[in-house]
Nucleic acid binder design. Structure first.
Length: 481
RNA sequence: CGGGGCGUAGCGCAGUCCGGUAGCGCGUCCGCUUUGGGAGCGGAAGGUCCCGGGUUCGAAUCCCGGCGCCCCGACCA
């Protein structure tokens, strides 16, 4: 750290800034177990807000929560060839239990397709049982070689949705519906703009027919895969014999989907909005949207300001604003710095002068401080929150567009852009996986997705940026987390 | 698994070259004074110097052997 009071500036060392911010805001801490993290109350509160919003959205679209076991028989993983190949290197395997070696090792779930579809095969008999729409909130384990707080840890928290449908079209519709749901959540709650679209074969989920992803750009111009939605086709249905009797008396395999977002989103939130003073949390996800800081000099003032603060808190709380009052015996300035580092959107300072004037001093996390009248303060704060939520989103979109290159004229320009400050490059691709691999090898950039129509460039590229051959799609290239 | 760095108080470090029984800053606790942007003074607590062995009258320091962590590369939400 530059000194004990300020964070390393983003421009100087983005990675150090990120780690220091997490420690300063007390979002998480390193655990005694390599590669694992402890999510501290301040960080977990953000995850809980995310969970609530997403869970409501899943329920509103007909999904139910369930819980499947942490341990999966090792043989289950092997049933889908591509799936096992994709996950084998990062599995944690339990070989002993109760002091004895197990007859069959148990895998600690890296994801739950296998055990869930094994159960689906019991529960689904008829077309009347479809669609089956389920979600679970769980922890998963993937033995990563290199980890980073929130972004990649050996154990992480997520939700995984799993559905079964009668037709391929219904499965595709579900996959895309969830992609849209994720997009709305990321834009409207996280104020984090994303680009959606299908992954290439090389980047898709092991075992999926197609993977669609949400790609966000962080402040260091690197891409973050923020969520994925998979159309699994009938791959798992065939491996786990998930069949149903059709309306016309036939027998068919179901069509599955799976989709997930994880605690990685907290990392995305930090790297989208955080500044050199610390965390910046969008009001809709903030644990405390407003923090009241009472100010006093003498004991009499102390009592008066505490009473006024209690009244104010009650008023805001009953209006549905998440508010807390910082009564600790510290210098007010110290409290300001602390709440700013934690990302609290708004602070209301309340002292004798304010009380006498019938005002409170409003300080915005994004900057600016002014007295506002107590009269109508609820409406004023709600308005301020909406403004901030929108301002964060607009700023993130502007930052992303400023760091995006559409239609590079040449391979050289393409490479130079990626090797400079980086960002998103939109360019034509011939569809050859070998070219994709070669570009990754040379530039460390991967195809994040083939952007959906609304994210594509006004001028459609006709040739591949690398080979000059006819382009099959416009691809979004970037270096990624 | 390769390359580099590091293990000393809760955190950050000095002390190691040249052996003499452990210190600084921040934080923590108590008291008084303070409190509108990171308070001041006084007092106090807190250490298997990563582990094991060896050399020595004596080891944080020297020797041998382990272990762990961080950073950079190969896998990934």
């Amino acid at each position: 750290m530059a000194d004990s009071k300020s964070l390393t500036p983003r421009a100087q060392d983005f990675s150090a800034w990120y780690n220091e911010l997490i420690m300063r805001a007390e979002l998480a801490d390193y655990s005694p177990v390599r590669g694992c993290m402890v999510i501290r109350p301040n960080g977990y509160a953000i995850w809980e807000q995310m969970q609530r919003a997403l869970d409501d959205a899943f329920k509103a679209t007909g999904h139910q929560n369930a819980y499947f076991p942490l341990f999966i028989p090792q043989s289950f993983l092997s049933k889908e060839a591509e799936h096992v190949e994709g996950f084998a290197p990062e599995l944690a395997v339990v070989t002993h239990g109760g002091g004895k070696e197990l007859e069959e090792p148990l895998v600690v779930r890296p994801t739950s397709e296998t055990i869930i579809y094994a159960m689906f095969s019991k529960w689904i008999q008829s077309w009347r049982d479809l669609p089956m729409l389920m979600n679970q909130w769980a922890n998963v384990v993937r033995w990563e070689m290199r980890t980073r707080l929130f972004l990649r840890t050996t154990e992480f928290l997520w939700q995984e949705g799993h559905t079964a449908h009668a037709t391929e079209a219904e499965a595709e519709e579900e996959t895309l519906m969830i992609l849209g749901l994720y997009r709305r959540f990321m834009e409207e709650w996280m104020a984090m703009p994303i680009v959606t679209g299908p992954k290439t074969a090389a980047e898709k989920f092991a075992g999926a027919l197609r993977t669609y992803s949400c790609e966000a750009m962080m402040q260091d111009n690197k891409a973050l895969q923020a969520g994925t939605s998979h159309n699994l086709g009938q791959n798992f249905a065939k491996a786990f014999d998930v069949t149903f009797q059709t309306a016309d008396g036939g027998l068919a395999h179901v069509w599955n989907t799976s989709w997930g977002v994880s605690t990685r989103l907290v990392g995305g939130l930090i790297m989208t909005h955080g500044d050199d003073n610390g965390m910046v949390c969008p009001p809709r996800l903030a644990q405390w949207q407003v923090v009241i800081v009472p100010i006093w000099r003498k004991d009499e003032e102390r009592e008066a300001t505490f009473a006024a603060a209690a009244d104010l808190q009650q008023q805001l709380r009953s209006a549905g604003i998440r508010v807390t009052t910082d009564l600790r015996d510290m210098k007010p300035g110290a409290k300001y710095y602390e709440w700013e580092a934690r990302g609290a959107p708004f602070r209301l300072e309340l002292g004798p002068r304010d009380i006498a004037a019938g005002t409170a001093m409003l300080a915005r996390r994004l900057g600016g401080k002014e007295p506002i009248p107590m009269e109508g303060i609820v409406a004023r704060l709600q308005d301020e929150m909406a403004t901030m939520q929108q301002a964060l989103f607009d700023a993130a979109v502007a930052r992303r567009e400023a760091a995006s290159l559409r239609g590079p004229k040449s391979k050289e320009e393409f490479i130079a852009f990626l090797e400079g400050n980086g960002g998103f490059v939109y360019a034509g691709w011939c569809g050859d996986p070998a070219v994709e691999a070669e570009i990754k090898e040379q530039t460390k950039a991967t195809i994040r997705c083939l952007p959906d129509p609304e994210f594509r460039s006004p001028v459609t590229p006709t040739t591949c940026i690398w080979t000059g051959r006819p382009a099959v799609a416009e691809a979004l290239w970037a270096r990624a987390y």
